[in-house]
Design a protein around this nucleic acid. Structure first.
Lengths: 187, 187
DNA sequence: CTGGTTTCGAAACCTGAGGTATCGAAACCT
DNA sequence: AGGTTTCGATACCTCAGGTTTCGAAACCAG
């Protein structure tokens, strides 16, 4: 029979560097901006060799996607009216994008994906799809409609971030909520 | 007295290459994507040396901005209700972004601006401000409100373009119009 | 037709970033 | 102690943005 699945493989075990690398990534992106946050610098900030990073993530883009997944976590979907769910989701993503480094990393990896179909696929399937499915389920809306509102909400927040370098202020987030909410009045 | 201002300066005159370079830029970006549309390739497609391009535009970003200004032209602002002006403006920018190469170039230069404050300033002042001012004037709205709706409309269109690689379909543009229009019912 | 001035094209070059390859040292298990 | 794997350091490759150089071409004045 095969060896028990929990048997540790021989050799030196991998060091747990994910948390340190994620923190170093957000810190470096926040301090230097996305383009100047090179993999070398991120590795140095994490106290790790560049080769170690490339052993775990196949590209800078996928590292950033994993970092964002870690930073965002699951959507808080408080039970309640559809409008309430939508409003809290919008405020949640706006607040996350406002955290230091997160918005820059998000806008940066999104930008890279424009010219990189493989990264676009990763971004779509690993980052967008889980949230899209959760929202479809919570709202009882069809896929194309949820995708549309993701375009509206995330697109608006990233456009503001990209044009001004600053996350959207609370007053404008409120305006965004009021723009979207009437379309989820029913139920 | 000084020589008449219309006197041609001595030496070889500059060749008029703007139109050819703009066309080559959109064509190359459309065929290869933004990142692979290098300045070398754009120059080759235009039948021009790379140095000639850098004599006229200080960076790839500014070349793209000028190319977009040429491709967009002025906003058609048909006289009518504020809602009608807004609806036609949204459909106009959506159609422009849907033209081959334009959406990719727009998303690409926007992406570059994320990590390049100088380019962000150029994008804001040369590309966004003229349209913002025209809309403020036509709609009688304050600056921050027009900026907010530019974030919503352009952000949504670019997010769709960036995530799917395709411009937004007409049905979704209609949904975008219907999302925004109720906020311009008055007058 | 000749000389002065400017622009053009071709090529070599520099910098910086993503990503890969190599290899000895370190960490774990048996 | 020996086998296996990962780690860090370093050198390296590719490619894109951008600059420099320089001879050739295009214009004007005399």
């Amino acid at each position: 029979m095969a060896s028990p699945p929990s048997a540790r493989p021989p050799g030196r075990p991998r060091a747990g560097v994910h948390a340190a690398v994620f923190a170093a990534t957000l810190r470096t992106v926040h301090e230097l901006g996305y383009a100047r946050a090179t993999v070398d610098r991120i590795a140095a900030a994490a106290g790790v060799a560049k080769t170690t990073i490339y052993r775990r993530w196949p590209s800078k883009g996928e590292l950033i996607v994993d970092c964002l997944l870690d930073a965002f976590g699951p959507v808080p979907l408080a039970a309640g009216s559809r409008a309430g769910i939508m409003a809290s989701a919008i405020r949640w993503v706006a607040a996350k994008i406002g955290e230091p480094g997160v918005g820059d990393a998000f806008a940066g990896v999104f930008s890279d994906a424009v010219s990189d179909p493989a990264l676009r696929e990763v971004l779509s399937s690993r980052l967008q799809d889980p949230y899209r499915l959760a929202l479809q389920d919570a709202l009882g809306e069809p896929e194309h409609r949820v995708l549309f509102f993701i375009d509206v909400v995330v697109g608006t927040l990233l456009h503001r971030m990209g044009m001004t370098g600053e996350p959207m202020a609370d007053a404008d987030v409120t305006a965004l909520v009021e723009l979207v909410l009437p379309h989820f009045a029913g139920q």
